[in-house]
Amino acid sequence: MSAVSTLQGRLGEFDEKRLLLLAMFVPFTLFFVLVWGVPIGYALGMSLFSDPTGAAEFAFLGNYVDVLTSELFGTALWNSIVYALSSTVLSLVLGLGLALVVNRKIKGGNALRTMMIFPYLLPTLVVIFMWTFLLDPNVGAVNQFLLDYGVIQEPLAFFSSTTWAMPAAIVASVWKYGSFAFFILLARLQAIDPNLYERARVEGASTWQAFRDITIPNLRGAILIIILVRGIWMFNKFDIIYLATRGGPLDATTTLPIMVYELAFLGSPDFGGATALAGIMFLLLAAVAVVYFWAFKPEQEVTT
């Protein structure tokens, strides 16, 4: 009798648990399928048709071949890589430097930490307005500063120069997104037992040796995740570049997302090409991410 009741009790418990699991799981699965799965599938489907929104005709990989062989693709891919890599690496370096400074508990460290969140909170439009103003050849403070100190002889129109448009876009992006790395790295730094540094000092380690042997290994996982996540975000970043330069001048800042936009909405709309290019970007990033995880194992954290 007691055995039966125990069994029933267990079954009842099991059912309750399963019910709870389902109640948690099903809505989110539905949501995910509707909001992510369907549009992605739909877009990938579209990429297999020529003129998918009008007289759709199955073209299989025709759109992919067209996009990959187009003149712009190489330039846009290169621009994307340059933009994503440099803005990620620079914001990592900047974020790490500032995090190390704030972690030293210097005077004004708290104020600096609070200020660091502001660029992240500002709308991209405002950030770009600010930077176009700062970099303006006629009224911009940066040109004024460079002229006063004799670095340049003529004012530079940063966002309209094929040489300087990309660096200017990168600087604006680092300014806006550098705090992402800063906050993650600061949190990680604050989690390191300060006694480790004291022990290292007593054991004879120099500041540099302590940084190399304690700080870097403890930050490794965070740095690798920042590079991956920030890199993917910057690779897909559209707004900040488009608002600053519209991909110009002469395609100097046309990255892959901007090329997708141009294919889809400029001139004669080519949704087939645009969705095919989006598919190519997705596959590229997925491949890079898989290789990255395999090579660096960023999920391995230092266990404390």
């Binding site: 037992d193 480790l196 022990r199 304690i214 266990t303």
Partner: peptide, 10 residues
């Protein structure tokens, strides 16, 4: 020095 928190490099 041996610390109260033991302070082994994790």
């Amino acid at each position: 020095m041996v610390f109260q928190s033991i302070a082994l490099y994790p």
